[in-house]
Simulated scan of single mutants.
Amino acid sequence: MLDFFVFANPVNPFKYCNFIKTSHMNSREDQLKAFDRLLTIMDELREQCPWDRKQTMQSLRHLTIEETYELGDAILDNDLNEVKKELGDVLLHIVFYSKIGSETKHFDIADVCNTICDKLIDRHPHIYSDVVVEDEEDVKRNWEKLKLKEGKTSVLEGVPKSLPALVKANRIQDKVAGVGFDWEQSNQVWEKVEEELNEFKQEVQKGDKEAMENEFGDVLFSMVNYARFLKINPENALERTNKKFSKRFQYLEAKAKTLKKDLKDMTLSEMDVFWEEAKKK
């Protein structure tokens, strides 16, 4: 459970300026003790457990991805107890990678923490320097400009190649918008959606599979862009629909089982009765 929110003094992150307390709050000392406990356990497991001793960064990679998705599920379900547990799993992986890095003398957990601290300070000159910003959009634009100054040749370098396509489309559009490559109004984006839909329909009529796929991709990309203008996260929206559909279909399956019927033997009209029931649940 996420028990409190802490607002830290930007100049001295270790000094609390204000806090909202719910059920309980661990002191900074307790937080550091808990983290030290995790580091100690990781040392012990790496030394004594056959499975942990065998792991490499490569062997952990797919497990890390899985844990990240499980955290995403918990967040979408708004299950804060599960969020707490899944955050622990993700944190374990961070500590695990850092332990392996220390063994090869490349980096350790202190290097990891200091690197992100330095990055955050450098990327927030409106907090740690004299840069003035008006709103969050200014912050995002400055962020991308600072990344280019750090040596990146493209604002798109920060988009992981292995991201799912829908998430990647959203990140690409978000990043290019950060440097001014964007539409001015949402109606312009919707006009682009309609344009892409018409082009897709034309290719469907022609029956060229490759052209259809290309145009369908353009439709999805333009819809993601429109969602961004409406402040909708397309990945979250689609996943909510996936969950909604799955829940209704499972209700349909359960009802068919109660009637001792196989779905394959039911008509669409029969299934639709239960589907409508499921929508009211």
Rank of each mutant, 00 (worst) to 15 (best):
Q173Y: 07
S129Y: 10
N18A: 07
N214D: 05
M266H: 10
E270T: 03
K243P: 01
E70Q: 10
L91G: 15
S269R: 10
V90Q: 12
N242V: 00
M266T: 03
L45V: 13
E136Q: 11
R248Y: 01
E194L: 13
K206W: 02
I127V: 11
E184D: 08
V204P: 07
L156C: 13
D272K: 06
I109E: 13
M1S: 14
I172S: 04
S129T: 07
E199P: 06
K192F: 05
T68N: 10
F107Q: 05
L238R: 11
T267I: 01
E44G: 13
L60I: 05
A256Y: 05
E239P: 01
D272W: 04
K209Q: 05
L60A: 10
A110K: 15
V193F: 08
F229N: 00
V189E: 00
F245C: 01
E194C: 14
K84F: 15
N214R: 05
M266V: 05
A227V: 01
R171N: 06
W51L: 12
E86L: 03
D3F: 13
V11S: 10
S186Y: 14
E103H: 14
R28W: 07
F19I: 01
V204K: 10
L39Y: 14
D182Y: 03
D130S: 14
K145P: 03
Y128D: 04
H62K: 15
W190S: 09
S27V: 01
H106A: 09
E103T: 12
C117V: 03
R37P: 08
K54S: 15
T40D: 14
R37H: 14
G217I: 00
P234I: 00
A256W: 02
F274A: 00
Q48I: 12
A227K: 04
G72R: 08
W143P: 01
A227G: 11
V219C: 13
V179G: 08
